[in-house]
Structures are given as C-alpha cells and as structure tokens.
Simulated assay, not measured.
Amino acid sequence: MTKLFIDPGHGGNDPGATANGLREKDLTLEIALKLRNILNNEYEGHSLMLSRTTDQSVTLSSRTNMANNWGADYLVSVHINAGGGTGFESYTYNGSYSGKEETNRLRGIVHNAIVAETEFRDRGKKEANFHMVRESAMPAVLTENGFIDNASDAAALKSDAFLTKIARGHAEGLASALGLNRKDGGNDGEQGYVEILADSLWTYNTADWDDKAVIVNKDEVFTVIRDKFPVDGGHMYQIKSGLYITANPTYVRYYTK
C-alpha cells in the first residue's frame, strides 16, 4: 500500500499569496481536496493523508513531521505562485542527499503530467531549499500552479473546472510515478474499451514509447484497465493483458458499453 501525503500550502492565519480576489490558501485546499477525491474514486493501492482538510493554521514543521511519522512514501506540497510570471513550475530539494536521482525522476513524471493536463506554460523543473522538500524523509515535490498576480492565470484559477484539471494532472502524474492502478470501470464506473483504428499499431511492455511489445491490428478491441494518462508528450491506456497502447484518437477509439 503506497502512502501519499498531500500538503495544501498555507492556511488559517497564513493566506499565502493574494491577488485578483484570490487567496493561495483557498486554492491549494480546493486543489488538494479534488486530488484526494480523484485518487480515492479512480485509483487503488494507496492510502492518503492531508496536512489539513479545512482552513486551519499548520506549521511547516508540523506538516513534515506528520508525513515522516506516518511513514509516507511520497509527499506533494501544492502551492500557487506570485511575482509577475505565468505558468507552472515544480521544485525538489537542491541539497545533496541519498535518493536525489530517484526524487527528480518521480518529479519529472508528475511535472509533465500537470503541464500536459493544464497546458500551463512550462517554467521548468527546478530545485530550491524549501522546508517541505528538505525536511521530508521521503521523495517530495512542491508544485507552483500558476501565478495568482497574473491576470490570465488568475482568471483560470477562478474556474472550478480548471482547478479540477490541476488536480487531475497531479493525480495522473502521481498514479504514473507511484504505480497506482486504476479501478475497474474508469472515471464513470463503466468499463472502458479501446478499438484499433489504424491498420496496425504497436503495443508497449511498459509506459515507455521505446519499449515496444507486439503489433495489434485494425478492428481489434481491448479492455482498458487504466484510463488515459500522460507519457512523454502523448498519452497511453493500459489494457487487460498488462500491455500499454497509445491513447491518440487518430489511431484508437475509446468507448464504454
């Protein structure tokens, strides 16, 4: 059972960044709660803990102590940026430590999924001496989801549908990075299927475009056990055999009965 710790940044008497009628603490909590619900409703093989589920004050040390004492396998700290820029960026700890290469590998999967889902401008995968990624005993990422003081980003952040996109990007990235399995039936509880539209098409042993398995042919139909998720500039499904296949609608058709 993978233990995932979700940290909505700020809260209580610490509003975080504020601008354009928005407060960071409210946005981070909403994204985190949506993320929790998506993971619990659509994936299995994990347990979750949140540093807060309401508008309450929680110190930085309390947050990492909670995660460390629980024995979390991964920590994600959700934030909204400020300072006049635009787009998305993520951070891991900039120090020298055991497991840094793996921490950055996992972060790359999460980062790419969020950018793919939100279509935020990609400001890059960065490192910094932030408490949440420094004092966590497990791999950790801090995400900065748009700029609250940028008019365009703020307009998007006022949309509940866009906050859901941010949460879904986190969920799909975390599921891919941590190997969580999608529950049978996909998003809406109905079993999904994929039909091959191309004359022939490669499948893949793993979620890697270079790890080719066998060729499937036009009109073949496969049962989907993991719904569409981002992989290096594209998307894949996992099918019942355990293999993976492109989710590009040019080549396949997804449907439910």
Rank of each mutant, 00 (worst) to 15 (best):
I6K: 00
P8T: 08
A17T: 03
A17Q: 04
R23A: 15
D26L: 06
L27F: 10
I38M: 02
G45P: 05
S47W: 13
R52I: 12
Q56L: 10
M66L: 06
N69F: 12
N69H: 14
G71A: 07
Y74H: 04
N81F: 02
N81Q: 05
G84S: 11
S90E: 03
Y91I: 09
Y91R: 03
T92G: 02
T92H: 01
T92D: 01
N94T: 02
K100L: 08
E102N: 10
T103D: 15
R107T: 08
G108V: 10
V110P: 14
A113M: 03
T118K: 02
R121N: 13
G124W: 05
G124F: 05
K126Y: 08
H131V: 08
H131P: 07
H131D: 07
V133H: 06
A137R: 13
P139K: 01
V141E: 00
L142M: 09
E144Q: 05
K158T: 15
K165P: 00
A167W: 02
R168K: 07
R168I: 11
R168G: 04
H170C: 09
A171T: 04
N181A: 11
R182E: 11
R182C: 14
K183R: 06
G186H: 04
G189H: 08
G192P: 15
E195Y: 07
Y204R: 12
D208V: 05
D210W: 15
V214T: 15
I215H: 08
N217L: 10
R226Y: 04
K228F: 06
F229T: 00
D232Y: 08
Y237I: 06
G242T: 03
G242P: 01
I245M: 03
A247W: 00
Y251H: 09
Y254V: 11
Y254T: 09
Y255F: 09
K257Y: 14
